[in-house]
């Protein structure tokens, strides 16, 4: 029983951290219509930034500034924000299929740089030597994990409240206006490019926050943490949960991460021993089927966006965006 609770606390921590990232993506896609195919770059920037600033000195690479933890985390978020600003400046004017691929490329390049820039990031070995905050006080066992979970949930709730307020604020209405009809917004004297960049950077900072918490939890980050599969996972959470709906985004995080881990557990538990070796591939097939099935039978997600503005049918959204870019 203790084991089950201990596991659930652990699971919930990772799910909640991913939930924060999904909220950040929801601001970018759900509210602003920006297709960020490189979520993992923002996530990784936060993770690396936090550990480089907050870790103990390590031989052979930058870092070990041993900053006070909240400052390190803020630093990681800032790092993520700066990266997003540069990427946004370069790519946000693109049509959204171009944008998706360009940002996907950013993420691949990010991983590649982390892997090779040994003197800055520790290279393929990654960064270790980070002391988790309050570890001396709480130990490293169940109590620590529980407190960490509470902290993460508080952050998640904070981000949620912030985004809910933002959505109903004039700024949020503007974002949706741009998403729905950029030409109209522009004709009303609004500056869509600037707004979009703001939303993109804000979303990325939130994703960077998730990355910072993630690397704090594992006290380690390496290029393997920033592979494109993470982008896919976070997108899957948003799609299943329902784009545009913050509650849905959070629920999606728990559901998809739950399905991801549960399918692994169930296969290892119930699949015959000869099939055990193939469970990895089988699991990927199942996950692919869940995603495709979801899109076939409930494309709006489990928790669809509550429409504040009337929204025309699916087909025309793309059109308005394309028009906006001509």
């Amino acid at each position: 029983m203790i084991g089950v609770i201990s596991y659930l606390v652990f699971f919930a921590t990772v799910a909640a951290i991913l939930g924060i990232a999904v909220l950040g993506l929801n601001l970018q896609w759900g509210n602003t219509g920006l297709f960020n195919g490189g979520v993992v770059a923002s996530f990784g920037a936060g993770a690396y930034g936090t550990l480089i600033l907050g870790g103990t000195p390590q031989e052979g690479h930058l870092g070990g500034f041993e900053l006070f933890y909240p400052l390190a985390l803020l630093g990681g978020m800032a790092f993520s924000g700066v990266l997003a600003w540069v990427v946004g400046k370069l790519t946000l004017r693109l049509r959204h299929d171009y944008l998706a691929i360009a940002t996907f490329g950013v993420a691949v390049a990010f991983e590649n740089v982390m892997r090779n820039a040994t003197s800055v990031t520790g290279g393929a070995q990654g960064i270790r030597g980070f002391e988790r905050p309050l570890r001396d006080f709480l130990g490293s066992g169940f109590a620590y994990n529980l407190v960490f979970l509470i902290a993460v949930v508080v952050v998640l709730a904070g981000v949620y409240v912030f985004l809910e307020r933002l959505t109903v604020s004039p700024f949020g209405r503007l974002l949706r206006a741009i998403r729905e009809d950029e030409t109209a917004a522009r004709s009303l004297g609004k500056a869509p490019d600037k707004l979009r960049l703001t939303a993109f950077v804000t979303g990325s900072v939130i994703i960077g926050l998730a990355g910072g918490l993630y690397s704090t939890f594992y006290a380690f980050v390496s290029p393997q943490d920033v592979l494109p599969i993470l982008t896919f996972q976070i997108w899957a959470m948003l799609i299943v949960g329902g784009a545009g709906n913050n509650k849905g985004a959070m629920a999606g995080a728990f559901l998809i991460w739950g399905a991801w881990t549960f399918s692994g557990w169930a296969l290892s538990r119930f699949a015959p021993i000869e099939a055990q070796l193939y469970t990895g591939s089988i699991q990927f097939v199942l996950i692919g089927m869940v995603i495709v099935g979801m899109l076939l039978w409930r494309p709006q997600g489990l928790f669809p966006e509550r429409l504040v503005v009337s929204q025309p049918g699916g087909g025309s959204r793309e059109k308005t965006q394309a028009e906006g870019l001509t």
């Binding site: 596991y7 652990f10 990772v14 594992y218 055990q276 990895g280 699991q283 990927f284």
Partner: peptide
């Protein structure tokens, strides 16, 4: 036996389970 998928999150979760 659990698959790590060479994904640290997945591997850590599998180990924890």
């Amino acid at each position: 036996l659990r698959d790590t998928q060479v994904d640290p999150k997945v591997g850590v979760d599998a180990a924890k389970a």
